[in-house]
Write a protein that binds this DNA or RNA. Structure first.
Length: 288
DNA sequence: TAAATCCTGTCA
DNA sequence: TGACAGGATTTA
């Protein structure tokens, strides 16, 4: 479900609710979320009585920044949250009905709760206490360029794509190259760049790389401004849907006219994922 | 580099 | 009943 703009919107909407709050109770209703039953005790031990000092983001990972009252772990530690396909992180009043498939609840000292619901249970919370054996998932360690961060430009992107023989769509989905792009935004970015999704990364000329380097942050930040994209499940930290779905130019529009040229939008499976593109605006074999 | 896998829900 | 869904990892 959530790609960078959705995760960033969740970050922006939960932080005001969490700033300075202390966790009074940790309720784990499905241990898989924290990595299995043998990790729950450690997870609860660290989070109970901890205070929120910040909420960050890297790619599609949310980073809960915490401080312990007893100074354990040097006082500071982090929890990584990945929503995967159907994860929802929301702040709620205790009296609010629980969403179906609520797996984890953090009760706060103001009486409210941070809740995690995830239908398909792919989402994961990872404790980074700094203790041995408590390390970040490899996917997090290997994250590539941050599209909305400093230093995201054509030379940096070109260097990451250098020597890669794969299809450009697969390259955009590879979190080790650029962090945060998923299936929706990959298609939207390629359409705006006029690049066929099956173009090989090695075929891309400097103009195409420059267009990608400019378009990636432009599309993602525009989507953040719209509160992300809700196709079905996604909601922000306040339970609201995102409006960028109304700005999508190709994703989910198979057979409908391209908004640029009027030709029917095509659908194909590329890199194992449903892919939408305009055969006229995104011709095969030209890398600009 | 592709397919299978982890899950549940929805739609044709 | 089978295909498919916004993700990522593991296996072949």
């Amino acid at each position: 479900m959530p790609e960078l703009p959705e995760v960033e919107t969740v970050r922006l909407t939960v932080w005001p609710e969490l700033a300075g709050r202390r966790i009074s109770q940790v309720l784990i209703q499905h241990p898989d979320v924290v990595g299995g039953a043998d990790r729950t005790a450690e997870f609860v031990e660290w989070l109970h009585e901890a205070t929120f000092t910040g909420v960050g983001r890297r790619g599609k990972y949310l980073i809960l920044e915490m401080r312990r009252p007893d100074g354990k772990g040097g006082g500071q530690f982090e929890v990584l949250v990945h929503l995967r396909m159907t994860g929802k992180l929301t702040c709620a009043e205790p009296a609010d009905d629980q969403l179906p498939h609520t797996h984890l609840r953090l009760c706060l000292d103001d009486g409210r709760e941070l809740r995690f619901a995830d239908t398909r249970r792919f989402g994961r919370w990872t404790l980074l206490s700094g203790e041995p054996g408590c390390k970040a998932p490899r996917g997090y360690q290997e994250l590539g360029l941050e599209p909305l961060g400093e230093g995201f430009d054509a030379p940096a992107l070109g260097a990451r794509l250098q020597g890669r023989g794969g299809k450009i769509k697969a390259m955009l989905l590879d979190q080790r190259i650029v962090a945060g792009i998923g299936n929706i935004y990959a298609d939207e970015i390629l359409h705006r760049c006029g690049l066929h999704p099956e173009m090989r990364a090695a075929q891309l000329g400097p103009d195409a790389v420059a267009r990608l380097a400019a378009t990636i942050p432009a599309v993602l930040s525009e989507a953040v401004g719209q509160g992300g994209t809700t196709i079905r499940d996604y909601v922000d930290g306040r339970g609201r849907k995102g409006d960028f779905v109304y700005s999508l130019r190709v994703y989910g529009r198979a057979g409908e006219p391209c908004l640029a040229c009027g030709h029917a939008v095509a659908k194909a499976t590329i890199a194992g994922r449903s892919t939408f593109f305009c055969p006229v605006c995104q011709p095969a074999g030209r890398g600009g």
